[in-house]
Design a protein around this nucleic acid. Structure first.
Length: 216
DNA sequence: CTCGCGATTCGCT
DNA sequence: GCGAATCGCGAGG
């Protein structure tokens, strides 16, 4: 039996506290194999959403609806939602059934399928680092939409491949982006990104100052 | 059923 | 820095 160079992360990877999963996802490889071809990138920016107690989460206050139903299920599936009338965002569901938490994938460093990503973005002149920078752009570049809501990440067509852990000193933290409506919860340092990556979206505040410490 | 708004992005000022 | 684009969702009547 030949072992694959990189195996899909097992379900146990996702069935852990969400902040841990969020940080551990940095450096892993997101792959989408579709009829159009293969597109893949290294995860360089994520945000944790921590369920009923987290006012920034779609499951804040225990909200359970058709849209966020997947978040209520077991970890290891994709939660994809549509927003602003034009963008998709994709999350990795964490923990177990009844613990509706997830990690939003905000940016990838493109590794494979660059031409396909460019075609999907419909922006021929974009630099590589910008192809999957930002949650909406990431979904667009990888061809992810609501049809993939609930997809199991261990079996494809979308998988997360294991890769060596990134050094703790390379991980920066900051408050989450675009959640001002959540009041003081918007200040929680639950965004994690790779220091120095040009594929990270938005402001990279905290990159040079803060280290990723224990966040709660 | 109506209505307000969003875990965003891009282009213009 | 600001606002438009654009529509499904979710709360409330």
């Amino acid at each position: 039996m030949t072992a694959p160079l990189a195996a899909a992360l097992p379900l146990a990877f996702y069935a852990r506290p969400t902040l841990r999963v969020a940080r551990a996802l940095l450096g892993k490889i997101l792959v989408h194999r579709s009829a159009a071809g293969i597109a893949a990138g290294r995860i360089v920016e994520v945000e944790a959403y921590r369920g009923p107690e987290d006012r920034a989460a779609h499951t804040a206050g225990g909200r359970r609806t058709a849209r966020n139903e997947v978040m209520w299920g077991p970890g290891g599936r994709l939660y994809v939602y549509f927003t602003y009338g034009m963008h998709h965002c994709c999350n990795v569901v964490t923990r177990g059934p009844g613990e509706p938490e997830a990690v939003l994938l905000r940016a990838l460093e493109p590794l494979a399928g660059l031409a396909l990503m460019r075609r999907r973005r419909n922006r021929p002149d974009l630099p590589v680092a910008a192809l999957a920078r930002g949650p909406g752009n990431l979904c667009r570049a990888l061809g992810i939409d609501r049809r993939h809501d609930g997809a199991l990440l261990t079996t494809g067509p979308i998988v997360v491949l294991d890769a060596p852990p990134v050094r703790a000193s390379m991980v920066a933290v900051s408050p989450r982006i675009g959640v001002a409506y959540a009041g003081d919860h918007a200040l929680r340092p639950w965004r994690f990104f790779l220091r120095g990556s040009s594929a990270v979206s938005g402001r990279r505040v905290g990159e040079s100052l803060r280290r990723a410490g224990r966040a709660s």
